[in-house]
Design a protein around this nucleic acid. Structure first.
Length: 916
RNA sequence: GCGGGGGUGCCGGAGUGGUCAAACGGGCUAGGUUGAGGGCCUAGUGGCUUAGUGCCUGCGCGUGUUCGAGUCACGUCCCCCGCACCA
């Protein structure tokens, strides 16, 4: 099969069938350019297969399909890996080795560009082998290493800024003090899933000192009974303006990086603080400082306020100290005791403050109080309010009165790959794209509402994502990329330089052909070509005819008709894609459809770094070929579900290919006959397959489409060949040719191979099959089904008897039963309530027989006994006379039959008597 | 926590109020088949029963709506994914 595939790929390449030029009606599909820091694995390519499937389908439907492909290298990972190679990091060597990079090549990866180019080569090679319908003249890669693309990004950002959609401000990030840069989740040794939490720091007073306590539950400040410090921790006294703050060493560093102008002014051991009394700023209550081991200096400020009524840790610590304080009850929650923390601790059997169950206890209390709790009269102006929805207000209220400050911290400890513990840092002067802009947002939503989303279930997700969109930091200081046009210290961040690049594919063709160069790509060029603005095109240095040509091509191919990707890109990239299009382009250039899909699994397992089970695309293509890979994954899922690649499925496909090709070859030896029932049956089935395949493909339901186009067609053809001694050449030719066409979107190489046995042309250039009305024949399909069922019943009986039958007698039901069943059926089809059907039937004079009630009752009890398509007694009789069985078959009518069993006969279910 | 998607056979999964719960694929079992490299065909694959058209069980758990529920409602448990500057 692999040789076959190679042959067709060469032929496609030679006939340039995937090179789309502006002509006719178009269909523009894109698959997000992948990040090229490793060779492709099967997970990368499922979306591409789906997009490719659509491109091919549309092409045969008469559209001029364009499927281009570029490569992404903006960001940190490439640079990071290069640095690690330069530093001879063994881990990194191993990663590349496992990915299949030859040992001799790896050291050259200390240069990120070399690495990227190597991997781009790998990707292109594999994509060629996969036979994708890509127009390779339009390929490119990102970052300043490609000045042409950088010019495009620069233009985009100047435009956005010109529209006031770029802003500047403070921004909290997880930060590594040793690397002096933000730590992305992939750069973390620990805490990959950590998020940034906003704490309220309550400023308790203790004489001249501020004793700050960080909390996520500011509402509980009203219930503080005491303060906790860790007696073994050395605390820092820090000057802040006119105040002196008491902080753990970690907290000192954190706050400094969060824009607090702190100055070191002394130290004090936690134990020394015990016994002092603080004042609660919100209500003036006194709170003595007590020691507790659960207080971790690296969390929050290193000082904790104690709310024993609502915080299990605090209660447990007090119990440990054998200290009795008056607990303050603040929040009423249904089904909770007065002091929920006490109740939960007792219920869970928590004995000390070091009990790991406390984490869960805290969670339980918090969850319930947050959602169901109402604050009581102790909570000042917030009395009577629910906890949920009030938190933000409380924080602001406290902040405004200088009772509290803000501290950002990670939800779990984060350690950088350089092994340094990280914390949250406030970045000053961070550049933002203002995705929260209300007007912009509503335009994005309007675009969404006009788009097709495949599958529809994902629409809600898009809508929520856009609704919740906040400003996005769009630049960073390290990594590869395009510099911000107005501030070269910053590089446009990877998700932000990848939002409208589909337009660049049009231009890339001209750049790759050497017709347009870096110097021509001025802002005027893009303004003119992409936005149709009146600008001084002289400055592009290009002849008007060339500009017109490019512009015409852009106007022809744009907008994007379909963008297909994995579901992981919904909340950012795909939304940014919509956002940037609606900001920059007029409405007729807004994208038309997005499709999202699941992630490929490998032999039933999710592929992950930890499992190390990424299956390289090259392995699969080498072992099974492109079609087997495509069919295997397209066959296991659609919509948002995860497909599963299993080699046994790929093998099963290859086995079938053999059979199919053999059947194809056999057609030339067949003779023509007058059409028989089975001929008409096959022709009719093919029409159904065409209809369903087309319908499902239109909805991008690859699995169901494939079921008809491949499994269905194959099953029908197999059945035809097995049931007919002398297959008809014309019928088979038609079936095989149609089969080939229907297979193009799924198994394009196999499709060509089949097609080539009948034609010299490419099947890719054939028209998508349409239903041929004169072949549609419901009755022959129903009849065949009927015979199948009868045959099954006979089999069942002979199996039970356990003897070989000498002959079989089949009795078709009496005529009155047909009338009766037909009447019942029409009642049911009309939706007559079940209990009314019996009455109606019994009223009907035609059915005055003693058996009627029993028959109707059994039909109503199990409506599945009513056949979907009711044949007449004579039709059944005629069909049964054609029944082929390994013993002699006799058919008779119930009216004339002497068999006692004959009375069991029902329409669609004849009585069967097996004679042994 | 918020948001999205789910829980059906040995497995992947069809099935969105009534024609078959398990289509289609894979696996497994049995029988047949000169059958060249991980073959083909046929039948079977919840339980019981029986010369088939029967009965029971069954779609995470519970309750309800209905003549009828995997399918609708309410409650509950569990799983997966995203939550942002990270590809």
């Amino acid at each position: 099969m692999i040789e076959i595939e190679k042959r067709w790929q060469e032929r496609w390449h030679k006939s340039k069938i995937f090179e789309a030029e502006p002509e006719g009606k178009k269909y523009f599909v894109t698959f997000p350019y992948p990040y090229v820091n490793c060779p492709p694995h099967i997970g990368h390519t499922y979306s591409a297969v789906r997009v490719d499937m659509v491109a091919r389908f549309k092409r045969m439907q008469g559209y001029n399909s364009l499927f281009p492909q570029g490569w992404h290298m903006t960001g940190e990972p490439l640079m990071g890996a290069a640095k690690r190679i330069a530093a001879k990091d063994k881990e990194q060597f191993k990663i590349f080795k496992v990915a299949g990079v030859p040992d001799s090549v790896i050291p050259s990866f200390s240069d990120p560009e070399t690495m990227a180019r190597y991997f781009i080569g790998e990707w292109e090679k594999q994509f060629h082998k996969a036979g994708f319908a890509i127009d390779w003249r339009r390929t490119f890669f990102t970052t300043s290493l490609n000045p042409c693309y950088s010019a495009f990004v620069r233009w985009q950002f100047l435009r956005l800024r010109g529209m006031g959609l770029i802003g500047k401000g403070l921004h909290p990030v997880v930060y590594c003090p040793s690397c002096d840069s933000p730590t992305g989740s992939h750069d973390r040794l620990q805490g990959e899933n950590a998020t940034i939490l906003k704490y309220t720091v309550i400023k308790f007073r203790c004489g001249e000192m501020i004793v700050p306590a960080a909390t996520l539950r500011p509402e509980t400040t009203y219930g503080v009974t005491n303060m906790w410090v860790n007696p073994d921790t050395e605390y820092v006294k820090a000057r802040l303006g006119g105040e002196t703050w008491l902080l753990s060493e970690d907290a000192f560093t954190k706050l400094k990086d969060q824009d607090y102008a702190l100055a070191r002014a002394g130290k004090v051991k936690g134990a020394k603080l015990v016994g002092n009394v603080c004042t609660n700023p919100v209500n003036g209550d006194e709170a003595p400082i007590l020691p507790a081991s659960f207080v971790k200096p690296e969390n929050g400020t290193g000082i904790v306020m104690s709310v024993p009524s609502h915080a299990p840790y605090d209660h447990a610590a007090l119990v440990d100290l054998k200290k009795r304080l008056d607990y303050i009850h603040l929040i009423d929650t249904p089904n909770f005791p007065q002091h929920p923390a006490v109740g939960v601790c007792e219920e869970m059997g928590i004995r000390s403050q070091d009990d790991p169950k406390l984490e869960k206890a805290t969670n339980t209390v918090y969850r319930n109080e947050f959602h169901k709790g109402v604050m009581n009269e102790r909570c000042g102006k917030f009395a009577g309010r629910r906890v949920s929805g009030t938190k933000e207000e409380i924080m602001n209220y406290f902040g405004n009165r200088d009772w509290a400050a803000v501290l950002y911290d990670t939800s779990e400890p984060v350690v950088c790959r350089c092994k340094t513990p990280n914390h949250v840092k406030m970045i000053r002067n961070q550049w933002f794209i203002k995705y929260s802009d209300r007007k912009w947002k509503s335009r994005a939503l309007r675009c969404l509402s006009k788009m097709k989303i495949y599958p529809e279930e994902a629409r809600q997700w898009f809508e929520n994502s856009i609704n919740n969109m906040i400003d996005k930091a769009c630049a960073r200081k390290s990594g590869l990329g395009t510099p911000l046009p107005w501030d070269n210290n910053w590089i446009v961040e990877p998700l932000s330089d990848s939002t409208i690049y589909m337009a660049y594919y049009i231009i890339a063709k001209y750049i790759n052909a050497g017709l347009v160069g870096e110097n021509n790509l001025t802002d005027e060029f893009f303004d003119h070509v992409l936005l149709d603005r009146e600008v001084d095109v002289e400055r592009t240095g290009l002849p008007k005819s060339m500009l017109d040509r490019i512009k015409k091509e852009f106007d022809y191919f744009y907008p994007v008709d379909l963008r297909g990707s994995g579901k992981d890109l919904v909340p950012h990239h795909l939304c940014f894609f919509i956002y940037n299009h609606v900001a920059l382009f007029p409405e007729d250039k807004w994208p038309r459809a997005i499709s999202v899909n699941g992630w490929v699994r490998n032999e039933g397992q999710k592929m992950s770094k930890s499992l190390g089970n990424f299956l390289p695309l090259s392995d699969v293509l080498e072992k099974f070929g492109a079609d087997a890979f495509r069919v295997s994954i397209l066959d296991t899922a659609e919509g948002l579900d995860d497909p599963d690649f299993r080699s046994e499925n790929a093998m099963a496909f290859l086995r079938k290919v053999k059979r199919i090709l053999a059947a194809t070859d056999s057609v030339k030896d067949m003779k023509s006959y007058k059409k028989r029932t089975m001929d008409r049956w096959l022709l009719a089935m093919v029409q159904e397959r065409i209809r369903y395949t087309t319908e499902f493909l239109e909805q991008l339901m690859n699995r169901q489409a494939l079921q008809h186009a491949f499994h269905g067609m194959l099953g029908d053809i197999t059945k035809y060949l097995s049931k007919i001694d002398k297959p008809d050449r014309k019928t088979m030719e038609y079936a095989m040719e149609t089969f080939a066409k229907l297979l193009v979107p799924f198994a394009p190489h196999l499709a060509e191979e089949i097609h080539s046995k009948f034609h010299k042309t490419l099947v890719h250039n054939a028209k998508w099959p349409k239903v041929v009305k004169r072949y549609v024949d419901e009755s022959v399909v129903v009849g065949e089904n009927y015979l199948d069922n009868v045959a099954k019943d006979i089999n069942h009986i002979t199996k039970i008897i356990g003897k070989k039958p000498k002959s079989v007698k089949i009795v078709v039901a009496s005529g009155w039963k047909y009338k009766l069943v037909s009447a019942v059926k029409s009642h049911l089809d009309r939706g007559t309530p079940f209990n009314a059907v019996m009455k109606e039937i019994m009223k009907d004079m035609r059915f005055r027989r003693k058996e009627t009630a029993g028959v109707v009752q059994s039909l109503l009890k199990d409506p599945s006994k009513v056949p979907e398509h009711l044949l007449s007694a004579n039709q059944e009789f005629a069909l049964l006379n054609d029944l082929v069985f390994r013993a002699k078959v006799m058919v008779e009518h119930e009216e004339k039959s002497k068999e006692p069993k004959a009375r069991n006969a029902m329409p669609g279910k004849p009585a069967i008597v097996v004679v042994t």
